[in-house]
């Protein structure tokens, strides 16, 4: 993948806030006093935090809390009403280095109906590097596409029609698509929604490998507290504003109760025995 040596992220994982010595273009995502409203009702309010390189950050919150909005702001799909969102130091809405960013949506428009594309065709979209009038005559990056499909465990599905895949397979296809471009940042929206337990475990195994071995920064929007506690290194809890942001082991019952508005019991794993 991108670097032959695994990314050393231990120091950053400890706090998730060691961005003082980093250049702005090294910081994957930074929210600066970000507000966003649909009509006049604010959906997210005064968001201030950064996601540092190598983090496995979860954005946690109840339904309607603004977590998907936060993710869309980070990807420049929405423009902040006020404040700023920086993606690798550039305003997200005018960001240009898209080869550094991978995005895995929960679903895509095309999954239903008889969408005719094969898995290989979709994964190959990840190799796109800008408009070229003669792109159709260019040789395809077969090796990179194969490598990405292998990492996501879908090489045996390469010639299948997209609309014939199960939800979990479709998601792994979208992960493969985003891995072809060898991103520095991978953003995912509710990645385990609708996936069975075996599929979920397979997903988390892939994520651990991407984050720990390849140093890819991961941002995962989720409402699954258990998975966040097990897999993520840092967590931002949002309910219109940020209720908690920090290392996931500091996330306690008090912060979660504040987030959901009712008492939440948390079973913490002993950090020595978790697979982090």
């Amino acid at each position: 993948m991108k670097s032959s040596e695994p990314f050393d992220t231990k120091s950053q994982k400890a706090t998730g806030h060691s961005n003082k010595q980093l250049r702005p273009d090294q910081i994957p995502v930074r929210f600066n006093e970000t507000w966003f409203s649909y009509n006049s009702e604010p959906v997210v309010r005064d968001i201030n935090f950064s996601i540092t390189p190598g983090e496995f950050a979860a954005i946690l919150g109840p339904n309607g809390s603004g977590k998907t909005t936060l993710m869309k702001l980070a990807l420049g799909l929405l423009i902040p009403t006020s404040g700023q969102v920086l993606l690798f130091g550039q305003p997200a809405e005018s960001f240009t280095d898209w080869h550094r960013v991978g995005y895995v949506p929960q679903r895509t428009q095309a999954m239903e109906f008889r969408f005719p594309a094969s898995v290989r065709e979709i994964v190959n979209f990840g190799a796109y590097s800008g408009f070229s009038p003669f792109a159709i005559f260019k040789r395809k990056n077969v090796a990179r596409v194969d490598e990405a499909m292998e990492m996501a465990g879908i090489q045996h599905l390469a010639e299948r029609r997209v609309s014939d895949l199960s939800v979990g397979q479709q998601q792994r296809m979208l992960i493969a698509r985003s891995l072809v471009r060898r991103p520095d940042l991978l953003v995912m929206d509710e990645p385990v929604a609708g996936i069975d337990a075996a599929g979920e475990e397979q997903f988390h195994t892939i994520m651990r490998r991407l984050n720990r071995d390849l140093g890819i920064t991961i941002v995962m929007v989720s409402h699954d507290i258990g998975a966040v506690m097990r897999e993520a290194t840092t967590c931002a809890c949002i309910n219109r504003d940020i209720v908690f942001h920090g290392p996931v082991h500091q996330l306690d019952a008090k912060a979660l109760s504040g987030l959901y508005g009712f008492p939440v019991d948390v079973l913490m794993h002993d950090p020595e025995h978790t697979h982090r």
Binding site: G76, Y103, T108, Q109, G126, F134, I136
Partner: peptide, 22 residues
């Protein structure tokens, strides 16, 4: 022919296409 990849990507998902630089 010239926009084959872009057309295919936007058809698959406009948001994904946008984040791909289309």
């Amino acid at each position: 022919l010239m926009f084959s990849s872009e057309l295919a990507q936007v058809t698959f998902d406009p948001d994904l296409a946008r984040i791909n630089g289309v």
